[in-house]
């Protein structure tokens, strides 16, 4: 079973969001998502300064199997991207919640965070999809 950290928030499309101390958000894909995708070989991250609404496709992750869109969990502006992914996309397979983060976002609508799932709800969602 994939690991699902309790301190993160999750989407149905398998993104995770971490609230940092400065109020910015770090976004990635879950361990379950990388498991479904298989070995990642290419990541197309957004531009710094790009502005997204919830559900916008903001990143493409490509594995040996297929290309997959990543959807922005909440509204905001991209402030930083994970440059290490350009040369080493497999970091996502190795450490989906840590070194494999995708980008950071300055949120424009903080209450949107409340719409996301907590770890228990996400676990239930994963279990349901597996059946």
């Amino acid at each position: 079973m994939s690991d699902i950290p309790a301190d993160l928030r999750y989407t149905k499309s398998h993104e995770w969001v971490r609230t940092e101390e400065d109020g910015s958000l770090t976004i990635g894909i879950t361990a379950h998502a990388q498991e479904l995708l298989g070995d990642l070989v290419f990541v197309e991250t957004p531009e710094i300064g790009a502005v997204f609404a919830p559900g916008d496709d903001c990143t493409v992750v490509e594995s040996v199997k297929a290309a997959s869109d990543v959807y922005c969990p909440v509204s905001g502006e991209v402030t930083e991207i994970n440059e290490a992914l350009e040369d080493s996309p497999q970091i996502i397979n190795e450490d989906a919640y840590g070194a494999g983060w995708l980008f950071k976002l300055q949120p424009s609508d903080a209450p949107e965070m409340d719409e996301l799932m907590d770890a228990d709800a996400y676990q239930a969602h994963v279990d349901e999809e597996d059946h």
């Binding site: 298989g38 070995d39 040996v64 397979n93």
Partner: peptide, 9 residues
């Protein structure tokens, strides 16, 4: 079997 963990390995 599609793979046993890592297709690339």
């Amino acid at each position: 079997p599609l793979h046993y963990g890592s297709q690339v390995d």
